[in-house]
Design a protein around this nucleic acid. Structure first.
Lengths: 208, 202
DNA sequence: GCTTTAAAAAGTAAGTT
DNA sequence: AACTTACTTTCGAAAGC
C-alpha cells in the first residue's frame, strides 16, 4: 500500500510540475498576444482540467497550452484566430487545432459560436476608422446573421466585408486590400462577402 | 419515413404535398481484400508497368484500375485496400478484375479473395437549409467552427457515423460499414433537425 | 503519430491569364 | 475579375517507421 501511495504521490507531483510549466507557457502566450490578464485564469483552468484527465500525455505541452489559450479566448469572446496563437508555438496550426478539438471533446466544453461582430473593433482600430463605422458594421452583421448569410463563413471575412461597406457608406473609404490585410483574409474573400451582403441585404452604396 | 427496403437515392426529392425529402448517394467505398498468400511486389512492379511502388515512402504498391475506376493498395502480405468504388457491385467487379489481371501477368493467386467493406462515404441533400448555429447549440456531439471548416461535424451514436452538415442542407456521411446505415443516418438527422427546429427554407 | 488511397460538402487561398 | 488547382474537415484499412 505504501508503494501505491508513493506512486500516486509521484503522479500528482508530476502533474503539478507539468501544470506549473504550462502556467509559464500560457503567461508567455497571453503576453505575446496582448490579451487581458483575465484570460490566464480561464486558460489555466482549462489546462488543469485537461492535465487531470490525462490529455497531456504524449502531446507537446506547448501545443496544449496554446489550445487552452485559444479555448479561453473563445469562451471570453476575444477575437483571436487559432493561427494568431499557433504561430507562436513550434507545433504549428495543425497540432494546436488537434489539441483544441481534443480539449473541447474530452472536457465536453460548450464553446460559444464565434461572433463576427467581435472582430469588428479589432479591424476598425487598426485602420483608424470611426466608432460610427464600427457601429454600422455591427448592424450589417446582425442583419446578415438574421438572414442566414453568415453560416459556414469565416467570421473575419464577414467582419471585413461589413466594415468595407460601412466605411463606404460613411465616407471613410478604405481599399479592399487594406481591409483584407487588417482582417487577415484575402481581397477575394472580402469581395465575395461584400458582394453577397450588398445584394442580399439590399444595401445601396453612395454613388462613385 | 420512406418505404422499408427502398433506397433513398430512388426516392423523389419531394412528395405530392410538397414536403422536402432527403436524397443520398454513395460516393466512395473503402474495403480490405485478403488473398491469404504472400506477394512479391517487385515482381508485380516489373510485370505491370502502370503501378507505383516506393517502399521507402509507403509499403503498399499502388494499382489503378480504369473500369470500375478504383485504386488498390497492394501489400506483400497479400492484403489490399481498395478505394473509390461507387457501389458494392463495382467493388466486387474491381476485385475480380484486379486478381484476373495479376494472374494474366504471371502472378499466381491461389485462393478466393475475401472482401470486407471498412468505410462508406456518401453525400446527401435534405433539400431544405439548415440553421447551423441552432443545430450547433442543440445537437449533442457536434462541433461547428466556421473559421476552420464551413460544415457542422456531428458524431452520431447509432448508426456510428460522422456527418458533415452544411447550411445548404447538403451533407457528407462517413464511417458507415453498410449502405443501410447511410440511409438510416440521413433520415435520423433529418428528423432530429426538424425536432430541434434547426431547419429553414432555402 | 506519420506515410498512401478516394470521395463529397463549402469556404478560402494562391497562381495564371 | 475569371479559371484552375489545392488545401481545410470526416472515415477506415493496410505495414512499417
Amino acid at each position: 500500500r505504501l508503494r501505491r501511495l508513493q506512486a500516486k504521490l509521484r503522479a500528482t507531483t508530476s502533474i503539478e510540475k507539468n501544470i506549473e510549466q504550462a502556467a509559464r507557457e500560457i503567461t508567455r502566450l497571453i503576453e505575446a498576444l496582448n490579451l487581458p490578464r483575465s484570460v490566464i485564469d480561464t486558460a489555466m483552468m482549462i489546462y488543469r482540467q485537461a492535465a487531470e484527465k490525462g490529455l497531456v500525455r504524449g502531446r507537446s505541452l506547448e501545443s496544449m497550452a496554446a489550445a487552452a489559450v485559444y479555448a479561453a479566448c473563445r469562451i471570453r469572446g476575444i477575437p483571436r484566430s487559432i493561427d494568431d496563437i499557433a504561430e507562436l508555438v513550434k507545433g504549428g496550426r495543425k497540432e494546436v487545432a488537434r489539441c483544441y478539438r481534443l480539449i473541447v471533446r474530452e472536457l465536453r466544453l460548450r464553446m460559444p459560436i464565434v461572433d463576427p461582430v467581435r472582430y469588428v473593433s479589432r479591424i476598425t482600430s487598426a485602420l483608424r476608422l470611426s466608432p460610427a463605422v464600427e457601429k454600422r458594421a455591427a448592424e450589417i452583421l446582425i442583419r446578415a446573421r438574421k438572414m442566414g448569410l453568415t453560416a459556414g463563413k469565416d467570421p473575419a471575412g464577414l467582419a471585413a466585408a461589413a466594415i468595407y461597406i460601412a466605411a463606404l457608406e460613411l465616407g471613410e473609404r478604405r481599399t479592399q486590400k487594406e481591409i483584407a490585410a487588417a482582417a487577415g483574409v484575402t481581397e477575394v474573400t472580402v469581395r465575395n462577402r461584400y458582394k453577397e451582403l450588398v445584394q442580399k441585404l439590399n444595401i445601396t452604396l453612395p454613388a462613385q | 419515413m420512406p418505404t422499408g427496403g427502398q433506397k433513398l437515392s430512388q426516392i423523389e426529392a419531394r412528395s405530392e404535398a410538397g414536403e422536402a425529402r432527403p436524397t443520398a448517394k454513395i460516393e466512395n467505398i473503402v474495403a480490405t481484400v485478403s488473398l491469404d498468400q504472400q506477394l512479391d511486389l517487385r515482381l508485380i512492379e516489373r510485370s505491370i508497368l502502370t503501378v507505383e511502388y516506393n517502399p521507402e515512402q509507403f509499403p503498399g504498391l499502388v494499382y489503378r484500375l480504369d473500369e470500375p475506376k478504383v485504386t488498390a493498395l497492394i501489400f506483400k502480405s497479400g492484403k489490399m485496400v481498395v478505394t473509390g468504388a461507387k457501389s458494392t457491385k463495382d467493388l466486387i467487379e474491381a476485385v475480380k478484375k484486379i486478381v484476373r489481371n495479376l494472374k494474366k501477368h504471371g502472378i499466381p493467386i491461389y485462393g478466393r479473395p475475401k472482401v470486407q467493406i471498412q468505410n462508406i462515404v456518401a453525400s446527401a441533400n435534405l433539400n431544405v437549409c439548415v440553421d447551423l448555429e441552432r443545430a450547433a447549440l442543440t445537437l449533442e456531439n457536434s462541433m461547428y467552427e466556421p473559421e476552420q471548416f464551413p460544415g457542422l461535424i456531428h458524431r452520431m451514436d447509432e448508426p456510428r457515423v460522422v456527418l458533415l452538415i452544411f447550411s445548404s442542407g447538403k451533407m457528407v456521411i462517413t464511417g458507415a460499414k453498410r449502405e443501410e446505415e447511410v440511409y438510416e443516418a440521413v433520415n435520423k438527422i433529418y428528423e432530429k433537425l426538424k425536432k430541434l427546429r434547426a431547419i429553414r427554407p432555402c
